[in-house]
Each structure stands twice: as structure tokens, then as C-alpha cells.
Computed example of a mutant assay.
Amino acid sequence: MARDTGFPTADAENDFARQRRRADVARLVSWLRREPDDVNAILPFDEVVAALGKVGEKSLGLQVVTIESIVGSVDRTGDFDRYFRPTSTHSRARWERLAVAQRRGESVPPVQLYRVGSMHFVIDGHHRVSIACAMHQKTIDAYVTEIITRISPEGITQRADLLIKDHRRLFLSRVPLQGSQREAVQVTDPWEYAELSECVEAWGFRLMQEKGEFLGRDTVARRWFGEEFLPVVRMLRGADMLPEHTDAEAYLWIARERYRLVRRHMWNDEIVAELRDRAPRKHKPAT
């Protein structure tokens, strides 16, 4: 780490230039590694909340927030990278002016943040966060508003992760599983959530025809999980089929193959045995 000169203006100028170089180097390294474009991109608040589904919000007042938890912005996603390094020189004058003020010990107001899970998004104070990063501060004072979402934001690290969150949110709106049942149904391909939704709704329709009565989505979801999903998964695991897949992925695959094979919506050990040889295997990467 470069040493300070003791002159606030010179040190602020050096800090900005250093952060700009680091941003450019990070972008070049990402390109050389053929990494996705969004690896170093700041997360957009609106897209994250849209994918998760906003339920409500509440003010938490003044908080001490860790710098590393600040990963996104409400409206300045193009001005800073994922580590709040400036991506251009157009904000240099303001950045350096605020940095000089901090180095001189002048009072700096808290920033304003949204909290989504463990992530924070800047409403106001982007330059102050950027300067805090440059000066290797661990925490920053902030007025925080917590956003309550329909599904958990856990697992979001880059923009590409929002697609699967969005599809999972839509799946749970169509198949409103609760508690541990909700957590037990996971897929890694976003589009499979749509296909799984269709499977559950079709199963519910057949159940309503059989019973001769209307059943709400909550009831269909609960009964599908207990009467269809769990028994099938137990048969699959007992037959040691698709061990590399999640329970939901295994269920979805065998549901497709069952209908192709027997054209019937039923399960028994004979069908599972007949499908065992058809089960795909995920290839392990070479070491």
C-alpha cells in the first residue's frame, strides 16, 4: 500500500489515480480470463428488488455498516465498479474535494443505504463510499432502510444471479410452498422453475378433477409436495438415481421420462426401475 505524503490534496489525487488504475486493471484481467461482463459490475438495486419481489420496507436509523457489504447502487451503476472504484475521470473533482475534506478531519455526514438481506445499496453518498474503500476503512456510518423481499437474496453475487431469483420468485407465486418445503425445492437452471410450475399446476388440475372440487394454490402446493414430490424423490434416492442433481431436478427429469415411456401419470417401482438406465450422468470436470 502506498504511503501518504502528509499533504491532503496530493494524497487525495494519488488515491483517485490509484483507484482508477485498479479499476482498469480489474477490467482487463476479467477480459483476459473471459469472465462474464458483470463480474466487476456494481449491482443495480431496482433489478435486484424486482427479481426478489418487494414486500415492504422499514427505517433502521443510523447504523455502522461494513464497507464490504455495500455492493450496489440505486442510480450510479455506471460510475463505479463492484469495489466502488471510479470507472471514469468525470467525477474526479468532486471525489478529490471530498477526500481532501476527510483527510483534514472535517465532518462527513452519514451515507444513505438500502439493505436487502446482508447487502447494501447506496442511495446517497457514492463518493464517500468510494473514498472509504480507497482509504481502506472497514466501516461507515449510514442511515439504513431495510427492504423486505418475497424470497431470500442469499446467493446473489453478480447480475447474472438475478435471473434464477426472478424465476424462483415466479415459481413460488404459482406454487406457494412454505417453510422447509420451500427450501427443499431448488433447481439450478432458471427455466426449469417454469417447467416445474407447469408440472405442479397440471398435477393440481388432475387432483381437482378426481376430487370434483376446487383447490386453492396453497392446498395444491402442500399436497403436491407431500403426495407426489416426496414419494418420488424417495424412490429415486432409494434407486440411487441422479445423485448429482437436486431433488427437484431429479423429479423433473423423471416426470418427463415417465410420461414419454408409459403415457400415464402414475408411479411405481417398476417404472423407476425401467427409467434407471435412462438417467443422465453429470460429467465431473477433469482435474
Rank of each mutant, 00 (worst) to 15 (best):
G179H: 01
D75L: 11
I151H: 06
Q137C: 06
F84P: 08
W31M: 13
M1I: 00
R281K: 06
S118N: 12
I164K: 12
F7D: 06
H136G: 08
V111A: 01
S30T: 14
E183P: 08
D277I: 04
A101R: 00
T9I: 09
E47I: 09
R115K: 12
R76K: 11
L113Q: 00
D269N: 13
S107K: 10
G226C: 10
M235W: 12
A99R: 01
F45Y: 14
P109Q: 05
E249L: 03
F225G: 10
E192H: 12
L113Y: 01
V64Y: 07
A2D: 09
L230F: 05
H245Y: 15
A41E: 13
S69L: 05
D15H: 03
T66G: 00
F80D: 01
Y83T: 14
M235I: 11
H167F: 08
P243Y: 00
M119Y: 03
E198L: 10
D277T: 08
K282L: 15
E183R: 14
A273W: 04
G212P: 06
A132W: 04
G78L: 09
V39C: 03
E213C: 04
D37K: 15
E201W: 07
E96I: 00
T89F: 07
V111I: 07
D24K: 08
E57F: 02
R159S: 00
H126F: 00
S59Y: 06
E57T: 01
K165A: 06
I254Q: 11
V187A: 12
D75E: 11
A41V: 15
V122S: 03
V39T: 09
I70H: 01
A17L: 04
H167K: 15
D161W: 05
P280L: 08
G78S: 14
L170R: 13
F171W: 03
I147Q: 03
M208R: 02
A50F: 12
I131W: 02
L196W: 00
R256F: 04
T89N: 15
A273S: 12
R169L: 05
R182K: 13
D79N: 14
G125R: 12
D161E: 07
R20G: 02
R104V: 03
Q209H: 13
E244F: 09
R169F: 02
P110I: 04
A26M: 03
T5G: 02
F214D: 13
G216Q: 13
M266C: 14
E35N: 12
D218Y: 05
H90I: 10
P176A: 08
T219S: 15
A93D: 15
M266P: 11
M119A: 07
